[in-house]
Amino acid sequence: MPDPILQISGLDAHYGDFQALFGVDLDVAEGEVLAIIGANGAGKTTLLRSISGLTQNAPDMIQYRRAPIGGLRADEVANLGIALVPEGRQLFPSLSVEENLIIGGQIGRKGPWSLQAVYDLFPILKERRAQQSTSLSGGQQQMVAIGRALMANPDLILFDEISLGLAPIIIKDIYDALPGIIGEGMSALIVEQDISKALSVSSRFYCLQEGRVSLCGASATVAREDISRAYFGVA
């Protein structure tokens, strides 16, 4: 097995007095696509927030290329090459579509992704580039959010429910585009409620239940019953 790019061990996360994650262990290999599944409130977003530095943790709980990053701020983590496509897209309303993409790339990391490359991937964005980002449809906004993260040329990209609130046909388009995105040697963590979508694009999966890893394994061979048990906690 190749070297892990990300290694999480014993991760606890809190919102004030409320504990959202309990001793989560997880690792992502270089170039691997990992799916994180779990019911509402299981802690998936909290996990991605912890990795990206939006939630602070003990430094050693999260290691990136063997360096402890759990205590870093989000902008420091971003500079190391980790990008997040946040839940609900969260574009900057004061910025045009193109500015949203440019600001994603302002870290200045080298790599295959540029404005042109994003426009090649999502041609509709080029047509809409001067528009206010909030004037786009949900699917187009999701393309901007993905493009914005790619512009940073990350080594590890985190997707938080990119299908949320989108029409099935749009979801299919975006998932069809995913292999082309991740194929460039990037590692990816995909949080998704749609279990079959998540399993189809990943090599391994982790299932979270009430802040704990309830199951993990190979995406191709896992049995459905095992997943529903891990997902809903039915004995």
Binding site: R73, A74, D75, A78, A83, P86, F92, Q106
Partner: peptide, 13 residues
Amino acid sequence: SDNQEIAQLMGLN
């Protein structure tokens, strides 16, 4: 000004 958290994700301190 729009969103401090997301701006941090862009590498802005």
